[in-house]
Design a protein around this nucleic acid. Structure first.
Lengths: 398, 398
DNA sequence: GTGAAAGCGCTAACAG
DNA sequence: CTGTTAGCGCTTTCAC
């Protein structure tokens, strides 16, 4: 029936030809037609030319589909599908034949067709964080990389896009409405994140690296900044410091306040009450931290150690101390947060807290996939402890 | 005809229902059914409930397709398609009706279906560069961001993936064979890049940020390192330096050799022949550059300025000079390359060469899209000049 | 100018 | 266990 149809269609028919059509018109086996079109060496050069000739006339370009596999294996396309997805019983013999055909044609299913059929793209959207000129976010960049890796392990891919500042949810909407992606991963969240509000509202699956406010229930992974700064503070105490100051962020951010808390907790545990002047706050820039350091060191009783809630700020503090001719790690200890790549390149190196960004990414993807399947785990809000990396800025022996 | 079919199917039929089916069963207009399902405020609460009830029975979840638009506009789906793609004459009146229907249903075509039909995913693959622990590549990270932006402007998106070191072409192959992407953008290329060889060989469309060897003809955009270092050298000459050394990369890399050449060109133009000992080479790490600086400064006649072919190396050189108590920018000038974010945070800031990474990304995308359409422009190998950014490390007045 | 219908490549009822 | 067939949502001939 099919053969008749093909023959009756004639060679100039506009319908998309299959590999079998080409093979038949050229009078060669399917496999031989395949090899001819792949440009592989063949026994018979004449056949090869015939195949290429026929393909040209049919306007056929090599593109192996499930039909070709079925034709070669002499089964229906359904059977091929069953084998490939293990979705239906198939006799061992048939299975073998099919797999051989798949193999010899180097067949891979078309994901677009699968997506259409399943109404699932197996694509995860990720909106690039805005980069203010002169700033960088190496941690988030690494996050993106590890996320791609974790997604692939589950058969998904990451589609990146840039979301404009003026309409932060537009692209999310568009990507979902057009069925481009199955959902999103967010990073760089904030307390009243418009994106989270939108996604929650629209019932779109997502998971985040970072928290928002306590009212919203959504899956996230975040770093426990409190524990991190607690660790740093304990370390400084162990190094013999008792006059420990902190340069934090302006009050009101979840992560900033958490980090600050770690400082109080550790000092409290050690029975120390820091003088008020030791608790300073600044924007998350090198130059603001520079000024904060200047203020601290001009105090009648300046600190012997300065904790910073980010590496960027620690850099500003170190710049100031350097400028004043103070020896970092000896005269004054400094610690940061994030383990920015530059922390290890400074002299002395900067003691800091490393975020296990690969684990974070993997867990966010896990949460996202669970969300997609509609089964949110009990622990869908995960806090991970950072790791203290001790370098010369707090320990002269290093 | 269609109506009859729907009615005859009965309410429990397993076929995917359309919005019209729901509306008819509930006995309300299509638009009202739509609003009920969207959860919008409505005039009639009873109708709303009826709609929701029917939708539940049909197992229908709101998902506006071209069929729904056609039903609402009382035209065929073909006509809707014509209007949306402007691919066929349509009377002004019909066009208006269709656009209104599109608007009121907030319809957006399903890209997966379009992709399947067109055999084009409108997705560009980008393989993440490998990150060696402790290293970072802020420039490439930014490139990825700008690339996403440029792609979107042309209706494309970027799909990121991680390609394993041990089989660098596997994922490229897979993504193409499964029709996931239409082609690739490469970055971080090298002279005998296995990926480029493969893509060229397989005839897969791509464009690169970076060159390879001269034998391969493929579209790329790259930075003209020769001009960059030439600019830096000229700047140092203008600042009154005549004893200018350079810390380059081991011989053999296209970009490394180009940068080195800029040094020779500028000195040549100034009639200066640098002593052999001023020309040093090291791996692209901070610590190797540190050692190179040490060697230079121990020379009987040490240089007064040191050019580095990367910011990372400049950082190592500055670390050494700092350590020796030498004033950077006053005793010894230093320059880098890349304008790493940290360059601006150091004290003094590092004079360096900024790559116009947003332009590079945009041009790479342009080249890629041209490649996809099969029309390679005359200038498909583009070299862009970097911009000299002068800071305190070479100019004490800054 | 409009619509019916045939697919794009695949999955999954359903029948045999 | 295997095959036929009806779609997934869209574009595009080809009639009318």
């Amino acid at each position: 029936m099919k053969q008749e149809l093909n023959v009756s269609r004639g060679i100039k028919d506009s319908l998309m030809a299959t590999l079998r059509d080409v093979a038949e018109h050229a009078g060669v086996p399917i496999l031989e037609a395949y090899h001819a079109l792949r440009g592989k060496a063949m026994a018979d050069d004449k056949n090869r030319e015939a195949v290429i000739q026929v393909a040209a006339e049919l306007g056929y370009t090599l593109n192996v589909t499930i039909k070709d596999v079925a034709a070669l294996a002499n089964v229906s396309i359904a059977t091929v599908s069953y084998v490939l997805n293990d979705s239906h019983p198939v006799s061992p013999a048939t299975k073998r034949t099919v797999l051989e055909a798949v193999d010899s044609l180097d067949y891979r299913p078309n994901v677009t067709a699968r997506s259409l059929q399943a109404s699932r793209s197996r694509l995860i959207g990720y909106g690039w964080h805005q980069i203010k000129p002169g700033q960088s976010a190496p941690l988030l960049d690494r996050f993106t990389y590890w996320m791609a890796q974790a997604a692939e392990a589950s058969g998904y891919h990451v589609l990146t896009f840039s979301n404009p500042d003026d309409h932060p949810t537009a692209m999310y909407r568009e990507l979902i409405k057009t069925n481009r992606v199955d959902g999103f991963v967010l990073a760089h969240t904030n307390r009243n994140d418009a994106r989270i509000r939108y996604l929650l509202d629209a019932g779109i699956p997502f998971a985040a690296f970072g928290r928002a406010n306590d009212r919203w229930r959504f899956p996230y992974v975040d770093i426990d900044g409190r524990i991190g700064i607690d660790l740093a503070t304990q370390h400084l105490l162990e190094m013999g410091h008792s006059q420990i100051a902190i340069v934090g962020w302006p009050e009101g951010s979840l992560s900033g306040d958490g980090r600050m808390q770690g400082y109080f907790d550790a000092l409290d545990e050690a029975g120390i009450t820091p003088p008020r002047e030791y608790i300073t706050r600044a924007e998350n820039t090198s130059s603001d931290a520079y000024r904060a350091a200047a203020a601290l060191m001009r105090l009648p009783s300046p600190p012997t150690a300065i904790i910073c809630v980010s590496d960027l700020m620690a850099l500003g503090v170190m710049n100031y101390l350097n400028q004043q001719g103070l020896k970092i790690g000896e005269d004054v200890a400094v610690t940061g947060f994030d383990d920015d790549p530059v922390s290890d390149l400074l002299h002395p190196g900067l003691t800091t807290l490393r975020q296990p960004i690969d684990q974070i990414a993997a867990q966010v993807i896990d949460l996202f996939l669970a969300e997609l399947d509609g089964n949110r785990p009990k622990d869908y809000q995960i806090l991970l402890a950072p790791e203290l990396i001790v370098r010369g800025s707090s320990d002269p022996r290093r």
